[in-house]
Computed example of a mutant assay.
Amino acid sequence: MSVEIPVGAHQPPGAGPAARIDGPDAGLIVRFDGPVPTHRPDRPLGAGSTDRTDEAGTGVDVLDSAGHLSCHGRTDPTMTRTATDDGARLRPVPAGAAPLFVRAGQAVYPARRLGDLVSRRPAGVTGHQWSSALRAEFDHVVCAADTGVPLFALTVGPTAPAGSAGQRTERMVSAVCAAVGLPVLRIGSPTLRAADHGRRIITYVIDARAYAAGAGGDDPDDNPVGYRDIVGRLPDGRTGAVNDLGALSRAAAVEAYVSRRLSDPIVRGLHVRWRDGTAEGWSWVEVRTGRCLVERVTVSEARWHCGVDPARLAEDLAAVAVGDRLPVGDRPAVAVTDESALLDRDELRRQICVLRDRRDELATPFAFDHLCGD
């Protein structure tokens, strides 16, 4: 349903006749886009849409005093869309719900089911997709602080195995979210969790998007510094990239090396972007000679922009995951003593070479050939 227009008001060409209505709803008509429903007087407005459709176009439906919907015309299907746009399908978070925090006019809420955010099934989504997707839960939902309308959602955790029921559910959720216009930022990692890292990731993305929105200039030759590349003073006093999420992990590796718990203080990494839109980042540190602690993270932003290169974000988050497993301070050195958690350096090199050999599947050139050498 869309905007209600008084009878007698100016109608667009081809909009069809405006019918007069008796009762408390007199003088109102309802305009909608898409296939024109066949008149079903036995179906009240609140019972759902009609089952059969006529030719595609924009109709003018009359809402009578009994709540019945009847079609009175058809317009050019290329006409401007009305309030049935996908954005109208997003349901605002209730006004009484308390956000975890508010940043830059955006309120961040804890876990929400997709069914709490979408008001009705969008066109093109099957009933099976709809019923399966509604039960899916996001770790965080970011909404406009003034209206409560969802802006994007975040999930953090292990990636579902290929061909699994979990992967099928993710695809259904993606189909519904794409149809209603809800961007979802998916962080795939066996180590990272929203409870520990969700706030930091969301804060980073909100700031990065705000910076990117204001960084563009009128000069086409102007090449502003990206958010990730801003240089400043780091917590340890050094100068470096202040928006490197892995900076603390790199400092932790140096600390662990000084205390003789690592054989190499350098956290290394690589990143790629696949043609399907997924970004992947690897990060590793040599714990003992020839034995490495490796983390891999994927980032999927699905036709949305998180404010920085998602591949570099994936690599930085992989460094964060490495830092979570380093023996720093009172943290137990499980990753250092558990051989099953480590990867042989030669095997790591072989896996990097396999990644390099898949360059035809990449959206951007592979820039880490040097890691395949001895």
Score class of each variant (00 low, 15 high):
residue 73 G to I: 02
residue 5 I to L: 14
residue 42 D to Y: 10
residue 77 P to V: 07
residue 176 V to N: 10
residue 240 G to Q: 03
residue 148 G to D: 07
residue 305 H to E: 09
residue 75 T to C: 03
residue 97 A to C: 02
residue 129 Q to V: 11
residue 280 E to I: 05
residue 113 R to F: 03
residue 238 R to M: 03
residue 106 Q to D: 02
residue 93 V to R: 01
residue 220 P to S: 00
residue 147 T to V: 04
residue 288 R to I: 00
residue 348 L to Y: 09
residue 241 A to G: 00
residue 98 A to P: 01
residue 234 L to F: 02
residue 295 E to V: 01
residue 67 G to S: 10
residue 80 T to S: 14
residue 286 E to H: 02
residue 56 A to F: 13
residue 83 A to G: 14
residue 306 C to I: 07
residue 331 R to F: 06
residue 7 V to D: 03
residue 223 N to H: 12
residue 351 Q to V: 07
residue 231 V to T: 07
residue 264 D to T: 04
residue 150 P to K: 06
residue 147 T to M: 03
residue 49 S to N: 08
residue 85 D to H: 15
residue 255 E to I: 02
residue 81 R to T: 14
residue 106 Q to A: 12
residue 15 A to R: 11
residue 32 F to W: 10
residue 323 G to N: 08
residue 178 A to L: 13
residue 319 A to R: 14
residue 6 P to D: 14
residue 9 A to D: 15
residue 184 V to Q: 11
residue 331 R to M: 05
residue 9 A to V: 12
residue 335 A to E: 01
residue 284 W to E: 06
residue 232 G to D: 00
residue 158 P to Q: 10
residue 290 G to A: 01
residue 332 P to S: 04
residue 311 A to M: 04
residue 40 R to K: 10
residue 68 H to V: 15
residue 24 P to D: 12
residue 82 T to M: 11
residue 347 E to Y: 06
residue 215 A to P: 00
residue 65 S to A: 15
residue 346 D to T: 10
residue 240 G to H: 05
residue 269 G to L: 05
residue 191 T to I: 15
residue 220 P to W: 02
residue 230 I to G: 00
residue 348 L to V: 08
residue 304 W to F: 15
residue 167 Q to S: 11
residue 239 T to C: 00
residue 148 G to P: 06
residue 204 Y to H: 15
